[in-house]
C-alpha cells in the first residue's frame, strides 16, 4: 500500500449551498509533490468539481495563493512533506469574497492597483531615437525589490487592516507605487503621494508587518509603507514650514 495523506479542503458551491463546507480527500503521499499537485490529483482522479486557480507551478504567476493550515501560501511552493503527517487544511485566501471553493474575487485589488498609477509618469517622454534612459545598477537596486511583486495577494490575506477596512489600498499596491516612485526614470511621486495620503491610503496602516512576513518574493511591502510614511510626513512638515516651496 502506498502511503497517503489527508487533505481537508474548503468547498463552496454557491448554486448549491449557502455556507462553505469542508470535504476530505485521501491522496498519495509523494515527497516531491507540492500541495498544488495534490489538488490536481483530486481534480483529475477523485472529484472533477473542485475549483482552484493555478498555472505556472513555479512560483511566478501568482495564481495559486490559498490558506494552508491557517497561513497564506503559494500552493505550488509548499510541499506535502512540510505538513507531515497531515491532515492538511486548504482554504481560500481570507478577507476576499469567495467565488467558489478555493477561488476568491481579487477584482478589488486590480482597481486599487490602477488607482495608484503603477506606470512611469513623465512630463515629456524623450524620443526613442535618443535611446535608453540611463540607470546605474545602484539606481536599479533602490527599487528592484519592490518590482518583484507577483500580485499573489498573500499579503492582503495576512493584513488585519485590510480585513477590517476593505477600503485600504493594501500592501502590494503601495509597494508597487513606491516601486515607481523610486525609479530614476519616473516623475510621478507627488501624484501618487496625493492619492495615497487620502483615506484608505498609507495612514490606514498601523504597521502590523504581517505582509512582509508572508511575502514569497521578499518584496517587503511593510518597508515600502514605512518609507512612504516618512516621505509623506516630510512633505507635510515642509508644507507647514515652507508653504510656498512644498512641491
Amino acid at each position: 500500500m502506498a502511503e497517503t495523506i489527508t487533505l481537508s479542503v474548503a468547498r463552496y458551491r454557491p448554486e448549491e449551498e449557502a455556507e462553505p463546507t469542508v470535504q476530505t480527500y485521501e491522496v498519495p503521499y509523494r515527497k516531491d509533490w507540492v500541495v498544488l499537485d495534490a489538488l490536481n490529483y483530486i481534480k483529475d482522479q477523485l472529484d472533477g468539481s473542485l475549483s482552484f486557480r493555478w498555472s505556472c507551478r513555479m512560483g511566478v504567476c501568482g495564481s495559486c495563493g490559498m490558506t494552508v493550515n491557517g497561513e497564506p501560501k503559494l500552493t505550488c511552493a509548499v510541499f506535502l512533506s512540510d505538513y507531515l503527517p497531515g491532515p492538511i487544511r486548504v482554504e481560500p485566501l481570507q478577507y476576499f469574497p469567495i467565488v467558489r471553493d478555493l477561488v476568491v474575487d481579487i477584482s478589488d485589488f486590480l482597481e486599487k492597483l490602477q488607482k495608484v498609477k503603477p506606470w512611469i509618469i513623465l512630463k515629456e517622454e524623450k524620443p526613442l531615437s535618443e535611446g535608453e534612459y540611463r540607470q546605474t545598477p545602484d539606481q536599479l537596486d533602490t527599487y528592484k525589490q519592490f518590482s518583484m511583486c507577483i500580485n499573489c495577494m498573500l499579503c492582503y490575506a495576512a493584513c488585519p487592516i485590510y480585513g477590517l477596512e476593505p477600503g485600504f489600498v493594501g500592501p502590494a499596491a503601495i509597494a508597487l507605487a513606491q516601486r515607481y516612485n523610486l525609479d530614476s526614470r519616473d516623475m510621478g511621486a507627488q501624484e501618487r503621494l496625493d492619492i495615497l495620503s487620502q483615506k484608505g491610503g498609507i495612514w490606514d496602516c498601523t504597521f502590523v508587518g504581517e505582509c512582509t512576513k508572508v511575502c514569497p518574493e521578499n518584496v517587503d511591502p511593510a518597508g515600502a509603507i514605512q518609507q512612504y510614511k516618512l516621505a509623506g510626513a516630510a512633505h507635510w512638515f515642509k508644507s507647514l514650514l515652507l508653504p510656498w516651496g512644498a512641491k
Binding site: 506606470w119 512611469i120 517622454e125 524623450k126 526613442l128 535608453e132 534612459y133 540607470q135 546605474t136 545598477p137 536599479l140 527599487y143 528592484k144 518590482s147 515607481y180 525609479d183 526614470r185 519616473d186
Partner: peptide, 9 residues
C-alpha cells in the same frame, strides 16, 4: 525601457 522595464544595466 521607457515604459519602466527594470532591465539589468
Amino acid at each position: 525601457e521607457h515604459w519602466g522595464c527594470p532591465w539589468s544595466r
